[in-house]
Design a protein around this nucleic acid. Sequence first.
DNA 1: TTGTATGCGTTATCAC
DNA 2: GTGATAACGCATACAA
Lengths: 366, 366
Amino acid sequence: MSASSVTSESLSGNAGSNGPMHSDASAAPVRIVDLANELDLSIATISRVLNDSPAVRPEVAERVRTHALTRGYVANRLARSLRSRTRSFVGFLVPAIENLAYSIAADACAQYVSRSGHQLILAISGDDPELEFNALRSLAEARVGAVIVAPSPSMTAGSRKLLAGMSVLEFNRTAGLSKNMVLCDERAAFIEAARHLLDLGHESIAYIGTTDAVSNGRERLEGVREELERRGKQLRQTHIRLLPPTEGDGYQAAQELLSGPDLPTALLVGSSSLSMGVARAVRELGIKVPEELSLIVYGDSQWGQLFSPQLTTIMAPYREMGESAANLVASILSKDEKEPAQVVRMHAELLLRGSTAQPTNMSRRT
Amino acid sequence: MSASSVTSESLSGNAGSNGPMHSDASAAPVRIVDLANELDLSIATISRVLNDSPAVRPEVAERVRTHALTRGYVANRLARSLRSRTRSFVGFLVPAIENLAYSIAADACAQYVSRSGHQLILAISGDDPELEFNALRSLAEARVGAVIVAPSPSMTAGSRKLLAGMSVLEFNRTAGLSKNMVLCDERAAFIEAARHLLDLGHESIAYIGTTDAVSNGRERLEGVREELERRGKQLRQTHIRLLPPTEGDGYQAAQELLSGPDLPTALLVGSSSLSMGVARAVRELGIKVPEELSLIVYGDSQWGQLFSPQLTTIMAPYREMGESAANLVASILSKDEKEPAQVVRMHAELLLRGSTAQPTNMSRRT
DNA sequence: TTGTATGCGTTATCAC
DNA sequence: GTGATAACGCATACAA
């Protein structure tokens, strides 16, 4: 909180209900019983109206509805859920909401779950097992009907135990937590990307990605390795960097890889945060793309368009994934009978832009 | 949901409690009364232990605690809040969580409110008055203890009425909803930016920003205009574009402005989404920055570093703002006595990078 | 120090 | 069709 100023403005004599806005935030909410008294009806009737029960005379219903509106009645979900044993919250546990992938997914997801009458509660693990546990615990306390979770690499036993008590939907990453999943086909996407580079004639391809402890990190690496081997090439150990997904790590790894002795002619990046760092390093090293190096990044398509040249990008359909997760959850919550588990696999696209080309003799060989 | 494949995998005979993981998600949660029966104690005693009441024999407390742990007891917040009349949720209403500013703020905020035992519920308005109302209603139903809100430009009367019943904290934007605010000094930031351009010798400065219906959009524009006038310059009407904050709008506005007859030598952008579009347009038009045009953007510092040259950027301390909001909310929720309203004003920094320079005769005059 | 009993706001089960 | 009334899971005033 470096540069900030805090001004305390006393509200002075604010006893009476003055001020056109700023009404009493402490005024007790109106309850069903209030409406009942005011209309000289029973709480049962009011409740029925509010729940659209047909068993109430239309004129009475109308009277109740208008009165509820004018009095600004807002149902108490806590009491409602408690009594009716229904669950109105849905949890969404992500590693980091700053990650555009998750923020887009969360946006779509929130919108769609609200459409089915639920409220999304966002929880953030920071990929930290302890924070993750706390977050899950908090969701459990809120009695979420379901939780959509992108599990951290090393989830604790405690977290798993909590999840065992909820209906869970794995999102983007898998860790054997559920039979319901919304994923995208990372392996196929990276196979496609590798093939693209191979087709251009690259022989020396490097990969910077995230730790293979998390499912999609693993899939990405495997996709690249698989395609290379299928073509009789090798993904050499010196051309692989597996790191935590931060901009800084990507920057450092690229710096190191691209100023080392064994220069690749193409570089494939397997994480959006890493991609940003890699791009920065490439820019600072003054490497000409694609003449000296072909580059394929992952994730966000936005800034990739600002780089010169525009970056060829692997992009997953985050919005659709979030939407899909919301719909799946809705279907799980509607029918309490055990549904057959569903696995939704989305296709990640390879956006061909200007950062890949045939290797030239300008390539930065030593 | 263009390219996706849905696989239905039947769970087959999954009747018995088999499967090491995937335990019964439908098992009823253990309640206080369960613990009480199993330990042959009263529910009052259990409750006291779980609330750290000192009025219970330490050995009993220990016995209860361990038993609760082994049984995997998770308190029911709904019941707890209902009975104790405490509020454990905090709402955070943002226009768009894809906006890095809000996602960073939400992250920090979620972390800090959870530290004080609360759970953040994220709500998204999409700057749409109707969605905003629904979101607020949903938060009201969840009986949030407070709501941190970045109001949409044209909030409905209904929304205002709802907010009147809650304790609200305005975030980043103001609309006369509360006396508690966490803002940043947009005006000062844009004065500083304008001064920087004027000091470099620019005479013809353009501004692309958001509609002045929203408070900070207004402040930004006013800051620029104020500083220019103080220096005897004019922010001409033809050099102003006020738009919705989308990448596309920024792109289009910049295209238009920078290929028109009355070319500015410097361009100031007042929104992060607009900034991306402007940058893309500048790049596509092949305008040399800063030789032909000095450019100052707003918001995200990350991709601004990838542009060539790196972009001079006005950046607000989103993380600190989120943290600050969380702390303010915590202090509001802890003491129910009417606190003096607090206004926190943070300083937005001007990061001088490579996109601004003196105007040259290379400047794109007609 | 512990237990009994009441109520939070709502829905659901009965009667009428 | 409508109205009493019990119960959801928990905290708490009061009794013991």
